[in-house]
Simulated scan of single mutants.
Amino acid sequence: MLHTDLLGPLPELLNTGDTGDTAAPTRVRTPTGDDMWLVSDYALARTVLTDPRFSRAAAAAPHAPRLNTASPSPSSIMSMDGHDHARLRRVTAAAFTTGRVARLAPMVQKVSDGLLADMARQGPPADLVAAFAAPLPVAVLGTLLGVPPADRPVFDASVEVLFDITASSDEHKARHRLLLVDYMAALIDHKRSRTDDDLLTELIRAHDDGVLSRAELVSLGLALLTAGYETTVGQIALAALAVLQGVLPASALTDPALAEDTVEELLRTTPSTPLSFPRVATEDVELAGVVVRAGEGVVVSLLHGNRDATVFAEPDEIRPGRTAPHLAFGHGIHRCLGAPLARLQIRTALAGLFTRFPALAPGEAVVWKDGLVTRGLARLVVTW
């Protein structure tokens, strides 16, 4: 089982599943009342995330078992398998190569420095989430995609609903989901008459060349805009909390020789995404003696896989230099495309934060977000 004070509230199925004593999948009940298999073993997790018999497309079917009441869009890259998924992934992969992300580093640094300067100017106390962790990814993703700065509050106010499990009504979630779809469609139409140099403009050209359908273009734009937002906000705040609670010294994040490996360990031990997207078995599959029947749903606990003691010695400890890859960004064909950009933002944010404010300290009780698929903090007040 997991032993740490940093986890905060978890999706209910992670609290009820027997995840610590056996490698075999366990049966869990989701908030929608559906039964699924929960995989918490590291090796089995990698199997589920790569085996084509566990389908994301099947999980988007109308009557597939669900983690929440949201209906996945079949035209989303996250709801595709095989050729269709590869086609959409090829269109976007070039934007997230190591070299292209490295060219974004000066922009990320400038935004981070500006937000920290604003914090210093306004003086303590400050809510680190509202003042720093949230606006950084908003600005970075907005710049990458070409979202006008004046429009960013539109999706900032609605994006959490896409990760919602229980916190809001079905009507509330549906309304905000439609707002985001309408906004992305309008932004695409606006950018058609321009010659901007951004990722969304490249996707529009791919649509015009017949590579993407209109529905795929809108879904892909939304996926890129939202998937890297809530997760990165959560990861920055969770990492800062680890330092503030004494789990590791700030120097591990400000020392260039240590920072990269330390961030990987923070991603492993306290990931902002504790669960994979569900998959549905397309045929009977045996996993560690358990037969997952065709049509049954499977979800992977990335959180537990990352702390599998058979793979990571003393798994609750931060130990830079581990060789086994963690699962925080997933695994296989659906592994997060934006991982290099997320890593850049997290490293830049944390190094800047603790360099600018070496005496940073918690100012009041932490407020955790609740009801989301992702983990994160609603409020992290700090002083210096």
Rank of each mutant, 00 (worst) to 15 (best):
L337P: 00
G99C: 12
R103D: 12
S169R: 09
Q122D: 14
A365H: 14
A378G: 15
L241P: 02
L360Y: 09
D196T: 15
H331W: 03
F54E: 01
T32F: 03
A150M: 11
L224S: 00
V140P: 00
K110H: 11
D21P: 10
L187H: 08
A259W: 07
A134Y: 14
G338A: 10
G338S: 04
E317I: 11
R205T: 13
G114H: 05
E296P: 07
F357C: 04
T16C: 14
D21G: 15
L337Y: 01
A257S: 15
V91L: 15
V154D: 10
V161A: 12
T201W: 09
T273Y: 02
L199M: 08
L141G: 00
A157E: 10
A70F: 03
G321H: 02
R356T: 14
R335W: 01
H172F: 12
L178W: 11
L180V: 01
P149A: 12
L267E: 05
L180C: 00
A64W: 00
G297Y: 01
E216F: 06
E286H: 03
D21S: 14
A185L: 06
P274T: 08
H85M: 07
A349C: 08
I188W: 11
F354W: 07
R356I: 06
A342Y: 06
A93M: 11
V263P: 01
S251K: 06
A94H: 12
R175A: 15
G210K: 14
T348Q: 07
R27C: 07
L275D: 02
H190P: 03
S272N: 04
V39N: 04
I346N: 04
R46N: 08
N68K: 05
P72V: 01
L353N: 05
A288V: 10
F132Y: 11
A61T: 04
A359R: 12
P362I: 09
H85Q: 07
P149T: 11
G210S: 11
R87L: 15
T262P: 03
S75I: 09
T355S: 13
V129K: 10
P52H: 05
V280Y: 00
A361M: 08
H207P: 03
F96G: 00
H207L: 07
A206H: 13
V218K: 04
A281W: 00
V263Y: 02
P149G: 07
T22L: 12
T254R: 07
P271R: 03
G246N: 02
A174K: 13
